[in-house]
Design a binder for these strands. Structure first.
Lengths: 180, 180
DNA sequence: ATCGACATGTAATTTGTTACATGATTAA
DNA sequence: TTAATCATGTAACAAATTACATGTCGAT
């Protein structure tokens, strides 16, 4: 019953190691092709956190005679900590910060053309991200589903639903602002 | 042409002072009833930032013979900096971090009942936030609209559209997971 | 040989929250 | 008189990004 609070980075590390053992480098790649649009992690967080988790006994190095790579795996304690977090009821951190939205909020202080241009950029950016998620991320999530792990694809679809709603709403506003 | 990069907190301060002069305390209250779901600010950021902005000449204290309050107003340079930011094309920071989404992503590693409970909590939380936004924030934004400032309400509606899309998608998943 | 990807790490800086500390004013 | 709200600030801590520093391996 150690009850060690996990840092956000620890959670993502333990989660990805639960799929299979990986190096810090591998974890970063995995984040980039799956969770990064709702949860990121940089090398500056991953490597120190792996060392802390090793000292805490939640992960250990799998020695595979590969000199230059340090492949980590979960220990029993690490797996338990992961499952405790997933089953716990800590309030989930939810942080949505959007500078475009802030510009939109203050757009009464600029001329109509500037406001419209900002809305257009916000919409265009969402189109880009949607295309990227469908082209680069969905195939990996689909593979997981085919392998019997449906939740990564479900998480992606929740993200797509959110972005599509924003894109559609912004496109409507774009038309409204243009129509005048 | 000072070209001073504004910190995120500076942007929100300048924006709210553009509506009308306020104290640091007032700015915090304004954030709480309007932007906090896409952009927050704590006293620990607001007060030091006001001092920096004053030294930089973007805001100044309006002396109103009120001993205990320091009411700030925009200077001409401050208003110019605000308009330059609003009209500029810096890439907008967009940060969406959602621990619930991370739990969802890793839910293949827990039993079906635990996964369902997490989805239910995510959906319930969105219902709560939607109710709060409609009850506590929308009336203020509506007042702005009535006063000829339509953008705060538009920004709120974009947020509502995003949360509704998530809520609906989560409710669908809840039914799917229950149905088995 | 040299370039790009692989790989690990640290340091500096930025950004933000929370807790602490203090005190004035107002309504019950 | 006392509790809540108003009001300003600092300090300690937490989290995250970016830049820096170093080196290996494989393909051309």
């Amino acid at each position: 019953m150690s009850r060690v609070a996990l840092t956000p980075t620890a959670k993502i590390i333990l989660g990805f190691l639960r799929f299979r053992p990986r190096s810090g480098y591998d974890i970063k790649q995995a984040v980039e092709i799956s969770t990064r649009f709702f949860w990121g992690a940089s090398y500056g967080q991953i490597y120190p956190e792996l060392q802390r988790l090793e000292r805490a006994g939640l992960v250990e190095v799998e020695q595979v005679a590969e000199r230059r790579r340090k492949v980590y795996r979960l220990t029993a304690a690490g797996e338990q900590a992961l499952v405790e977090w997933l089953g716990g009821d800590e309030g989930d951190l939810f942080q949505y910060r959007d500078e475009g939205m802030l510009r939109l909020f203050f757009s009464d202080f600029v001329d109509a053309a500037t406001a419209l241009e900002n809305v257009r950029r916000m919409r265009a950016w969402r189109d880009e991200v949607l295309a990227f998620l469908r082209a680069e991320i969905e195939p990996h999530a689909q593979e997981d589903t085919d392998a019997g792990l449906p939740f990564p694809l479900r998480a992606l679809h929740l993200g797509l639903a959110m972005l599509e709603a924003q894109r559609d709403w912004l496109a409507d506003l774009e038309r409204e602002l243009t129509a005048r």
